[in-house]
Design a protein around this nucleic acid. Structure first.
Length: 231
RNA sequence: CAAUGAGCCC
């Protein structure tokens, strides 16, 4: 089962869902029962392809066969729904999780926070951030990065910086993604000089800027007509 | 640690 699951995951990663489904069928023909991980991998693969119909079909089947979905299973579907902009339905699934006795985890909240941030709905994101803390679920660097990115997107650098400081105060370590979000925010606010300072700090702290980091920076520099600097 | 979550442009 472990081996099949790993292979199914590999096919999902390279977006060969038909191959993945084939293996899923074959393992059952061999008398092997897919477990929660197998189902989650396949459901996640379909969600990433945007095939929510198939994802829900598998979820039903999983439950029908007495295989209990985990929070990872639901998170995969919640993420898929969010990507399709069906955030309301995603929120609806939270109740289903709770009915199944599952505890929402950091990923659940981060998926939703990230989505609200992308829509510029920072207040809703903050509400979820508070909710998660109320429920004893501590935000981690992923959650903070999503939130910081949300503040950057709406040009609220003050709050972005405030949460960045909070990360440090809590002893968490900002990573490449966190710094890139900050750089993007400053570029967007026409503070390219500050963005460059942040990049220097990022390098000092052992994070290597990647193509996304440079992409954000080049965009910002070009906007400020500092094409030469961008070069 | 076999499965879920965060960053630019498009």
């Amino acid at each position: 089962v472990y081996t099949y699951t790993t292979m199914i995951e590999a096919y999902c990663k390279i977006r060969k869902l038909r191959r993945a489904e084939m293996l899923f069928r074959r393992m059952q023909e061999q008398g092997l029962s897919p477990n929660a991980v197998t189902y989650t991998v396949l459901i996640g693969g379909h969600c990433k392809e945007g095939n929510l119909t198939q994802a829900f079909k598998l979820l039903d089947r999983m439950i029908g066969e007495g295989c209990r979905p985990s929070i990872c299973t639901y998170n995969a579907i919640i993420d898929g729904l969010c990507r399709k902009g069906r955030i309301h339905k995603a929120h609806g699934l939270l109740n289903e999780c709770i009915q199944h006795g599952l505890c929402l985890d950091k990923a659940t909240y981060t998926i939703l926070i990230s989505r609200h941030c992308k829509q510029g709905n920072i207040n809703q994101a903050l509400k979820l951030f508070d909710d998660m803390i109320d429920h004893g679920c501590e935000p981690d660097i992923y959650t903070y990065t999503a939130l910081i990115s949300g503040f950057c997107k709406v040009g609220n650098l003050e709050n972005a910086e405030k949460h960045f400081s909070e990360v440090l105060e809590k002893g968490m370590v900002p990573n490449k993604v966190t710094y890139t979000a900050m750089i993007y925010g400053h570029c967007k606010a026409n503070q390219a000089n500050m963005a460059i300072k942040i990049m220097d700090k990022m390098i000092e702290n052992g994070c290597t800027p990647d193509s996304v980091t440079y992409g954000a920076l080049i965009d910002g520099l070009c906007k400020e007509r500092k094409v030469e600097e961008a070069r």
